[in-house]
Amino acid sequence: MLMARTFGLIGYPLTHSFSKKYFTEKFEHEGVEGVSYELFSLENIGMLEQILHEHHNLKGLNVTIPYKIGVLKYVTDLDPAAAAIGAVNCLKINRETKTIKGFNTDAYGFEASLKPFLKSHHTKALIFGDGGAAQAVKYVLGQLDIPFLSVVRKKQEGSIGYDDLTGELLAEYTILINTTPLGTFPDIDACPEIPYAYLTPEHLAYDLIYNPEETVFLRRARLQGAQTKNGLEMLTLQAEKSWEIWNS
């Protein structure tokens, strides 16, 4: 059957996808007909033009690693939050007006899933990594008035290195957020190299990764008594927000 509307995910590599399974099951459970969700594994972002040309019924796309920033050059309009973040993970395609509007539903999903875990002593955050997902995290922390430091392998202005993480610093920064792919299936033994021995029950460790359910980062934090949260709820929330945007 010819689908009236197609949605999908672009990224590379797409070895496993939460999105396709989630949306396919959503369509089935909710009786949404004439709709499909496809995977478009693009070796380079320039291949997006061909996808748009070949799939005339394509109405919306989710964007994942490594194109959340690179895809901006194909966007004709930006949602204010996405403009402030400087990265998008959701595209709404309008064939009639020939426009592609960019949104960042990562920010919505992250904020909604983080807030219930915040306590009075969670006043400062460390963000591991500085890619597209990290930009959404920074935006949300800014909205919540939570100061943060970015921790990266190669120090730049405004960031620190992993070797700068001392017990004193970790006592002050009690929210730890992993935005790197370290620990993602199948490389499940990897994790950010931080001094886990300094973590305490005062800490909140949040990993944007959802597969595996508990990464090494989360496990090592939990064993120190820290509260932990993986990225599954964030992913579910951002997927639902994408669907809302595509149908608005």
Rank of each mutant, 00 (worst) to 15 (best):
V35N: 06
H56C: 15
L39P: 04
Y139D: 00
I175M: 05
S159D: 08
V88N: 06
S19E: 01
Y173P: 09
I45E: 01
K101T: 12
F148D: 09
V75G: 06
D79F: 02
A87H: 05
A107Y: 03
E54Y: 07
S242F: 05
E202H: 12
E168H: 01
L204P: 09
E30A: 07
K59S: 11
P186D: 12
S36L: 14
H16W: 03
S36W: 09
E168C: 01
A82F: 08
E213R: 15
E28P: 00
A125I: 00
Q50H: 15
F7R: 06
S19G: 01
N62E: 10
S19N: 01
C90P: 02
D163H: 11
I10K: 01
E193S: 12
T179G: 04
F18C: 00
I69A: 07
L204S: 06
I146Y: 10
T179A: 07
I45Y: 09
I245P: 04
T179P: 00
E172A: 10
V63C: 04
I100H: 00
L149K: 13
A125V: 00
I51K: 09
F23S: 09
Y67Q: 07
A133E: 04
T76G: 02
R220W: 06
L39C: 06
A190R: 15
L118M: 08
T200S: 15
I69K: 14
E244M: 01
N178I: 07
Y206A: 02
A107H: 03
G70M: 11
S242M: 00
T64A: 09
L204I: 08
F148H: 12
I51M: 10
I85Q: 11
I45G: 10
W246G: 01
H203F: 05
I160P: 01
R222N: 01
Y196W: 13
H53I: 07
T179H: 09
K98N: 15
L78P: 02
G34T: 07
A136W: 03
K98G: 05
Q238W: 03
G132H: 03
T166P: 00
A81F: 11
L223A: 13
W243L: 06
K229R: 13
L237N: 07
I93C: 05
L235D: 11
L232M: 14
I127P: 08
K21D: 12
G8Q: 10
K101S: 12
K26L: 13
T179N: 00
L72W: 09
F128L: 14
E54M: 13
G132I: 07
G8K: 08
L218T: 01
E96I: 10
F103E: 11
Y108S: 09
L14G: 04
Q156V: 14
Y67E: 04
T215A: 02
K92P: 06
L78Y: 03
I245Q: 07
D77R: 14
V32T: 10
D163G: 03
N62L: 13
G102Q: 08
Y173H: 10
T184Y: 08
P195V: 10
I93M: 01
V63N: 03
L72C: 06
D187S: 14
E244W: 01
I10D: 02
E38D: 14
Q156C: 10
N57A: 15
F103V: 05
P186M: 12
N211K: 08
